[in-house]
Amino acid sequence: MNEIAVEAKGLKKTYEKVDAVKGVSFAIPKGELFGLIGPDGAGKTSIFRILTTLILPTEGKAEIFGNDVVKDYKKIRNNIGYMPQRFSLYQDLSVEENLNFFARVFGTSVQENYDLIKDIYIQIEPFKNRLAGKLSGGMKQKLALSCALIHSPDILILDEPTTGVDAVSRKEFWEMLIRLKQKGITIVVSTPYMDEANLCDRVALIQDGRIMKIDKPQNITNEFGRKLWAIKSENIYKLIQDLRQFEFIDTVYPFGEFIHITSKDNSMDINSLILLLKNNNHSKIEMLEVQPNIEDCFMELMNN
């Protein structure tokens, strides 16, 4: 696993007045499932378009398996499977026609690499004569992935493949990615869904054109650096407002049915806080110390 699949050094991308990528460096070993996690406008798509040789970096360098994204773009293009964020298939071709088209563009055939896509394609094969534009969201995704894989690339670059997709289809998609990783394919995937970070070997948390942190998800959550508590009561809205009034409380963020809070001196007398809230007419209060997740860490890094 020592071979490097992707290496970026000091990448910058400026569009007229906007600095989309502000100096980003990372290395991804061969065979890794690497996630770029961050909101819209963080610079994820610009980085991917540089790596896939579709745009030039303003500054810095990037290599895919040792090939330079500027000088050796032809070699890279043959060896990369790319799924852009917007649906990239021909809407007025059928499922089967799309797949054949992408195979032929890369000088291969569907038969030659069928093994690689079989698991995925078999699920949409019953609809092979349907126009791609008429597929449901989950099926479009499966077809797009099949088309990105059909020339047997060593690396897949997937730009927000699960955005706007429901929780069930998202889960299935990640199961497919994990099977592809087991076949030795390097996968670089971006997502705005923080909970998907845990499915990656390593992630880069990216915000505003800069990488805030790169590590294994487990290491990132271990390094949150302070204690975190979860609290709820019958009236969440009032609870948020009331917690913000207390001097000793630092951050207050809703998290599902609970609110996650930190304190300024990293300590908390749970019983006295509950009493304080009871005096403020809160009922059904529950409070416990919890382990931070990636989203807690992302917000903590944004605040620092």
Partner: peptide, 9 residues
């Protein structure tokens, strides 16, 4: 859709 976790909250 698409916003950072603080803005979403």
């Amino acid at each position: 859709g698409g916003v950072d976790p603080i803005t979403r909250r």
